[in-house]
Amino acid sequence: MVQIRTTPTISLQLTPMRIPEAVPSAGFSFANQENIDEITGTSLLLQPGEPSELMVQIKNLSQRNLQLELMVEGDFPSEWCWVGGTEGREIRPGGQMDAVLYFQVPSTYFENQAAIIPEKQEQLRLNFTNCRVVAYTDRNSEQEQIKEADFNLYIRPWSAYMDFLPVLYREVDFIGRFMKIFEQAYQPVIDSYGVMWANLDPLTAPRALLPFLAHWVAWPVESVWNLRQQRRLIRRAVEIYRWRGTRKGLRLYLHLYTGLPLDEHIPNEADKHIGITEPFGDSFVIGDAKIGEVVLGGGQAFHFVVRLRPDQINTINEQLVRRIIDQEKPAFCTYELLINNS
């Protein structure tokens, strides 16, 4: 009897781009019944919502051109994988073709409710060990040959807590899944401390916390202010208190309400969007002479003029502006309000 040996025409080599740090073993079979058998071979790590790749290197070992057809088979859902990176279907003698298998598991894989319904009795699978890459050459012809390469898929959640463990424990698959339970329970609390500053800043705090922050600085929360104005006023309330009764304090308050610029770089008060002037003139002034607190000529004492120049017409509530001025000015002062809408 004569045996005819068929020489393989192609070779397959699989290279995973993400390798699991730990794979199931018989030593920890109590964690999952499917982990009883030792699993060997090419292993690819999949994390829900994150893409992963498996490189396929195909070499032509024959002395003729080969027509190649590449397929992926396995017990995983077909929509998880697609083939890319192939350029044409023909491989020259001694040539090589590289293909890429792209994998992506749905981000809600571990939240699959079907796995926790008692009536269905389905178990959420973490390991897929019946996977293979099948390469056909000269399919549907007398020279057809088939080459297979097996690989395993391991679906695991990403856990930052594993970086804090010794290498000995990171090599145990069950430990990684066990630590993920604590990470999901405690990490949201830890993350909240990292952004605690945002809850204490009126500009970024949740709306429900604004009354609490306003109480800290004794600032009244009133419905006449919109949300943006409330945030700005609460944040600078202490500064308003410090400068109350002064031109700087009144201008700051009006700036926070109206949104008009402070124009601190403009030296002339009359040219500012928020101008606060005292109507003293130069008439009857003898040089620089002053007699006590009396200015010789020029206007009414303890009186000032507030002039607002908004860029848009009818955007300022005059009644509310007068309320602000009455609250911030010294009690013995009088004033005049002018709003230029042109």
Rank of each mutant, 00 (worst) to 15 (best):
P211H: 05
L254D: 05
Q229L: 06
Y253P: 00
D263P: 06
L61A: 02
E79T: 09
Q187M: 14
P267F: 07
N32R: 15
E87G: 07
G94K: 14
T204E: 03
T137C: 06
E278V: 10
F178L: 15
R247D: 09
R247N: 10
I316T: 01
I313K: 13
N140I: 01
I190N: 08
N341F: 00
T315I: 05
P220G: 05
I116V: 15
L44A: 14
Y193A: 14
T204A: 06
E79H: 11
E239D: 10
Q187K: 13
L153T: 06
I10Y: 04
E144G: 01
L296I: 09
T204L: 03
L209A: 15
Y257S: 01
G85M: 04
R18Y: 06
L126D: 11
L308A: 02
R309W: 01
I116P: 00
P202Y: 02
P211Y: 01
M97H: 01
A270M: 10
A205Y: 00
E144D: 10
G41V: 08
F284Q: 12
S78E: 13
G299I: 01
A218Y: 12
R251V: 14
K290D: 02
E264A: 08
E111L: 06
H215K: 15
M71A: 15
V306H: 00
P310L: 00
N65L: 08
F182I: 08
F76L: 13
D271W: 03
G259T: 04
E293F: 03
T137A: 08
Q327F: 10
V83I: 15
E50R: 14
I155R: 07
S283G: 02
A114T: 08
I190Y: 02
V321K: 10
I316V: 11
F30H: 11
D288L: 09
G245E: 02
W158C: 04
G27A: 10
R232L: 11
L14A: 08
K272Q: 04
I266R: 15
L68A: 04
Q67P: 01
G176V: 06
T6C: 06
R323F: 03
V321Y: 06
Q184K: 13
S62T: 05
N140Q: 09
S141P: 12
E73P: 01
P93I: 04
Y241R: 13
Q113C: 04
F103R: 05
V100D: 02
E328L: 07
R307H: 05
N35K: 07
M1E: 10
D173R: 06
I117N: 14
